Measured scan of single mutants.
Amino acid sequence: MAEQVALSRTQVCGILREELFQGDAFHQSDTHIFIIMGASGDLAKKKIYPTIWWLFRDGLLPENTFIVGYARSRLTVADIRKQSEPFFKATPEEKLKLEDFFARNSYVAGQYDDAASYQRLNSHMNALHLGSQANRLFYLALPPTVYEAVTKNIHESCMSQIGWNRIIVEKPFGRDLQSSDRLSNHISSLFREDQIYRIDHYLGKEMVQNLMVLRFANRIFGPIWNRDNIACVILTFKEPFGTEGRGGYFDEFGIIRDVMQNHLLQMLCLVAMEKPASTNSDDVRDEKVKVLKCISEVQANNVVLGQYVGNPDGEGEATKGYLDDPTVPRGSTTATFAAVVLYVENERWDGVPFILRCGKALNERKAEVRLQFHDVAGDIFHQQCKRNELVIRVQPNEAVYTKMMTKKPGMFFNPEESELDLTYGNRYKNVKLPDAYERLILDVFCGSQMHFVRSDELREAWRIFTPLLHQIELEKPKPIPYIYGSRGPTEADELMKRVGFQYEGTYKWVNP
């Protein structure tokens, strides 16, 4: 592979701008107003304001973009700056750019259920340069409990009458099928589907988006991507930290609602779906819905739930269990780990287990898709061969690698495990991989909904998990304890083995 010439960040961002501006969906010269509902909250200060700053800094926003914060707290732009700027990672050389960014910011205080507050917000936006005809993007960085009041008031008082209007809704989209349907029906009564952007930030990850290209742009994968060759698929999300004093919020939802029903299920769809007619948003989402419709409700015998306990040999936070978090209700049975087996009941995947695993306070930070292939028929190497695996590593250190057998150097035919490896950090030294939120917010500006969740996708996802969630809430089974920093409950490994996964433990990928 030829040595790549190092590029400056300015040059890299210039390439990104060229890609972005050559499309006809990006209205570079139009006025846009980006409204952050819930501007005083954690999500706004840690993710949304920093993301908008990065896009502005790199010249990736339309030229005439204004940012308006809205929340109940009586704040000023200076207050917003004070709480969000520490997350910007701005350099001293960017000081003038930073001043320009905050000059485009404003803030309006108001209630979430008060019509007069929204009329005041609308008047404020109209007073901005060309504000009355601007395109408006409303980001709901809010708890779902206020979605209905907020969307109703936005629709009645704050819509642009000339430009387009788009609304970005953060997960969780309800707690179960019934609450999700209620919320979807409410929002759909106010906005068209092409105006609604239900954001799952995992769909903005580079390697998640790469799944489609790997599958449908490489001839070698087509013939082997089926039940005849693939023994099982494992989708993993692991965090090495616990709730760390923020367990009160987590306890309301648990690990299945927080990660599995959305992030992991979306990745499953991209692995299992048929080739779409095109890369058009609805063509892709149509195929994802077909996959979900082929999955039956989760069966309790295919589920393992766990909850982390303190590690007596650990240090600091590792010595504390979930129930030691003062914000967690006493005696909570909320799971911090889950392993679930699903089956896609169609011709391509009949009988292939899709194993979804996620948890907190585990032994490493990792998100990946792992396809394990069947054993080689007619073994001539005296059971020395391990199964081939194709691994798409989402985070950290984005990579695609194939675990395969090669001859060990020497005189004899002794096979050993090795890999074919594409590590993004080595291959793409001159490429700026956008943060997931950067990519998705740019998608909203461009009107691309491919990486957002459609209402029928959402409904099918909740259909699969709601009976299990209701059973857990009714019966309150005690989750299996696992030690902070471990791989999780051993019962999860036993479940995976029972459905056909072979864990060798003899080879570990190392970032080159």
Rank of each mutant, 00 (worst) to 15 (best):
Y197R: 01
R57I: 05
M159N: 13
I230R: 01
I187H: 08
S184M: 10
F173Q: 05
V146T: 11
S106C: 12
S123D: 15
H129F: 12
K46L: 03
W53G: 01
G174A: 04
R72T: 00
T65C: 12
I167A: 09
L43C: 04
G254I: 03
E63I: 12
R74M: 14
T151M: 12
N229T: 06
I33W: 08
K97E: 08
E206D: 06
L7S: 15
M212L: 15
P86V: 12
G245L: 10
T151R: 00
T91Q: 14
D79M: 10
N135V: 06
F250W: 04
A231V: 06
N153S: 14
Q119C: 15
A103L: 14
V68C: 08
P172T: 02
A217R: 02
I167H: 05
W54G: 08
V150C: 11
I196Y: 01
L20M: 15
Y202A: 02
G23A: 12
H27E: 15
F26C: 01
C158Q: 07
R246Q: 03
L7H: 15
L190K: 12
S84C: 13
S160N: 13
L61C: 07
V77P: 10
F101H: 00
S179D: 07
D24A: 09
I80D: 00
D228T: 09
S40A: 00
T91H: 11
D58A: 09
E85V: 12
S40E: 05
Q161T: 15
A44G: 04
F87L: 11
E252I: 09
K171E: 03
R182E: 15
Q161F: 12
S123P: 00
I199L: 02
L140Y: 09
H129P: 15
L128D: 08
V12M: 15
Q161I: 13
Y118M: 07
Y202L: 03
N105V: 10
E206H: 06
A103G: 11
P86T: 08
F88L: 14
L235C: 10
W225F: 11
V146N: 05
D181H: 06
Y118D: 04
M212R: 05
V208D: 04
P144Y: 00
Q133I: 13
L43V: 06
N126E: 04
E93N: 14
I230Q: 00
G69S: 06
I35K: 03
T31C: 12
T91Y: 09
L235G: 08
T76H: 10
L203I: 01
K97Q: 14
K89H: 11
E244V: 13
L75F: 12
A149D: 12
P223F: 03
A44D: 00
I199V: 06
E85H: 06
L60H: 07
F241V: 05
T243E: 03
S157Q: 15
Q133M: 13
I230D: 05
S188A: 14
F66D: 05
G38S: 01
R219E: 04
E63P: 13
E239W: 04
Q83A: 12
E19V: 09
E148R: 10
G38Q: 00
F56E: 00
M37G: 08
G174P: 04
R246K: 00
T236Q: 10
K95R: 14
N135Q: 14
V68R: 03
S160T: 11
F237V: 13
L20S: 07
F216L: 03
A71W: 05
Y197C: 05
R136P: 01
S180W: 01
V213W: 08
V233I: 13
T151G: 08
S123Y: 14
H201K: 01
G69K: 04
T151S: 13
H155I: 03
F138W: 15
R74F: 15
I167L: 11
P50K: 08
H129A: 14
F101S: 02
D24E: 10
S117H: 12
K205W: 00
K82R: 13
S73I: 01
G248L: 05
D228K: 08
L137V: 11
V12T: 15
F66M: 12
Q119S: 13
L140D: 04
Q161H: 13
Q22W: 09
R136Y: 15
R192I: 08
